[in-house]
Design a protein around this nucleic acid. Structure first.
Lengths: 406, 406
DNA sequence: CAAGTTTTGTGTTCCTTCCGCTCAAACTAC
DNA sequence: GTAGTTTGAGCGGAAGGAACACAAAACTTG
């Protein structure tokens, strides 16, 4: 139920509008904030003053822009005042990052993850030790607002339970709780599927900035999807939404590792490309690199493998365009690499399987953030609490100072 | 951009919370409203008073419920104070209804629509003349808040342009504008796809009350879908979302009337059932009635036709459950009739094509509102403006009275 | 049946928050 | 340098809900 509102709700919403605007669009003048939010100069002045006092924002001398009138000082968020720690558990890599308000990347470190299964606690240890390898060093625990985690698998968003992650060999792993315990910080740990986070990152910082209806399709060994509906990530009832790799597309098709017959994934995943190139389906990522290299060098078998995969990708995307009516389809993972080689094949099949109206308004583009998208998306969801209610951080510095003096 | 908020925003939100609660949950006591909204008794008193003064609500003597304490009067919406006019243009019927606040059906009339094409202006005339056949008579124009229209076709929600409606033979018909001109009322005319409205109606008044993640699948000649994501209808970038009938499921399948190969619709639409029963694909609705009757009478061909269709429906639903992670799948149109005959077949195939986690939390149920769902959904969207800002109606009676006296 | 208990309506005062207005400051243009 | 424009600063006012005190209307108990 929508709770009733009061004056304090208004202030929270207005502070949030300011911080969110600065976070998403970057530093801007007070008078820009006036036009963006519709608030009066008086209100903006007071609210920005409050943010400054709390150390969340700074005001710099205005940039001269040659127009008449008194210049308006530029307001920026203080990146380090509130930061998110983000982790990602991908098929081939583990990564950690610290991201400040405004989306400033304060540090990132990455390590290979050998394929094969490893118990969750060991992976959690690996993740946390990545924090010590950050160029910026371990972040100050007091500045960390929340922890975001991107996982290649089905995640129950409520409590961060990894229901199933075939690439990791995990079933019912309480990753959120494990990580929270290991870190020992009393802040929320938010675990999400990597594609759901990928679409958020591409929306905020990548190929889909300013576009509110986006379908993000991520391919590796498996195929996942993240959907932005009217600017909001589509989670489904428990967070499992977006498993478009397991849509049946061929009743007489191959057996998928999920146990079903004819999943789309069996036709467009990394294994499908490898098989079409005459390689074993489970050859590693290097083998896939070789296929792309061979195609560029003119190898017709490799080229055909890529084009056929592009066609199958395109027809499936067609169905999804009819289903979601997105304004943009963002191809991530191996599909982003496939795109330049198979752009025409993808679009031809997409065209063949879409209704004219949704087709006319959709664009298919490769992801801009590459492998970092899920990690950056994890940071974005972790920062969400500050964006939604910046005032929660107000007492913070005072509280820390008080503890130090006591 | 989220506009800045102020005191008036708070009042609007709180009035809206009260009216919406009463609309969705029915009449309840003031003290219920206190707990529902989290507002204080003082605030509820003033706000309900305002609604009463405006004629939107009434207070009745409290019902005795046997608990100690002073009884709290029951607040009800005045159904006739603000009404929606709803129209639906289905494959086989035209309908009109007047629905008051609280979802009270004040009048409904329906007429057959012979299959075949008819120019839009003629259909608009037919719809408007249905208003004269309402048992309640034509609604008072001053009380009508908005007009909602459900159409079996692709609708651009922004302006009510019917992009394409194969059953009606329409392409690029500005239905919203035509109807607005024909009615001559200066109120919004909201046109939407029938499935998008169907899911809304089932959510508010039907099988999916209280469930925020719902997939509604409607079958007739064509197959459409409406999706509720976190309580909100998924419209897509232009309103075309939900065309799940045109997801490709068989690369070697039949030619769909949309021009593509192997659309799901070709396997589960009314034509597919008829064909499997040995009848022509374009036999009318009576032929389909015969198939269902024959199956009930023990005809094995008819039974097999229904079961096979159920299996194909189930496997496609499996992919959609993986895609949307809904808590409920509601089957409307012919699928609602199919359900009792093919429940097991549907579920078996759905089970075979879903991941365990989303499968474990989904239920498949027949629609509760039947053919009326889109019409009632159209009324709900039309009433939305009053729910979102009841104060817009405040000056209304005064204004009408003033006009009358002048 | 009368006194006590509980819950809720009524009305006043107070607090929070933003708007509107006036004046001053900082810039451009001629 | 003077006029024009845009914006910051600060103050008073208005709107709206919360908190509080009190009254009213039910039930409970002996």
């Amino acid at each position: 139920m929508d709770l009733g509102q009061r004056s304090e709700t208004v202030r929270r919403a207005n502070l949030s509008a300011i911080v969110r605007t600065l976070h998403e669009e970057g530093p801007q003048s007070r008078s820009d904030l006036v036009t963006r939010t519709g608030l009066t100069r008086s209100a903006i002045r007071v609210l920005v003053g409050e943010l400054k006092a709390a150390g969340l924002a700074t005001e710099d001398r205005a940039v001269r822009h040659g127009r008449p009138g008194r210049p308006s000082p530029e307001v920026s968020l203080v990146a380090g005042a509130a930061v998110a720690v983000a982790f990602s558990i991908g098929v081939d890599t583990l990564a950690a990052a610290v991201v400040g308000m405004g989306g400033t990347l304060l540090g990132l470190s990455r390590t290979d993850r050998p394929r094969g299964h490893k118990v969750a606690s060991a992976v959690v240890d690996d993740l946390v030790s990545l924090l010590d390898h950050l160029p910026s060093g371990r972040p100050e625990p007091e500045t960390v607002v929340a922890v975001g985690v991107a996982v290649a698998g089905l995640v129950r968003s409520r409590d961060g339970l990894v229901e199933n992650a075939p690439n990791l060999g995990w079933t019912s792993v309480p990753l959120g709780a494990l990580l929270a315990a290991r870190l020992g910080w009393s802040i929320p740990v938010v675990v999400r599927n990597e594609s759901d986070l990928g679409v958020l990152a591409e929306h905020r910082r990548g190929a889909a900035v300013g576009i509110d209806d986006v379908l993000y399709v991520h391919g590796e060994v498996g195929v996942g999807g993240g959907v932005l509906v009217d600017g909001r990530p589509m989670a489904g009832a428990a967070g499992y939404a977006g498993e478009i790799g397991h849509v049946p597309v061929d009743a007489n098709g191959l057996l998928c590792r999920c146990g079903a017959i004819g999943c789309w994934e069996t036709q467009i995943g990394a294994g499908a490309i490898l098989a079409r190139a005459g390689l074993p389906r489970d050859a590693g990522p290097e083998a896939l690199d070789d296929v792309f290299a061979a195609a560029e060098a003119g190898d017709v078998v490799a080229q055909a493998a890529i084009e056929t995969t592009g066609r199958t990708l395109g027809s499936g995307l067609g169905g999804l365009v009819n289903t979601f009516n997105p304004r943009m389809v963002v191809l991530g993972g191996i599909f982003g690499r496939l795109h330049p080689h198979a752009q025409q094949a993808i679009w031809e099949e997409l065209e063949r399987h879409t209704l004219p109206a949704p087709r006319a308004m959709v664009r298919v583009v490769p992801a801009k953030l590459g492998v970092d998208a899920p990690l950056l998306g994890a940071a974005e969801v972790a920062l969400e609490s500050v964006l939604a209610d910046p005032a929660t951080r107000f007492g913070h510095r005072a509280r820390v100072a008080q503890l130090a003096s006591a």
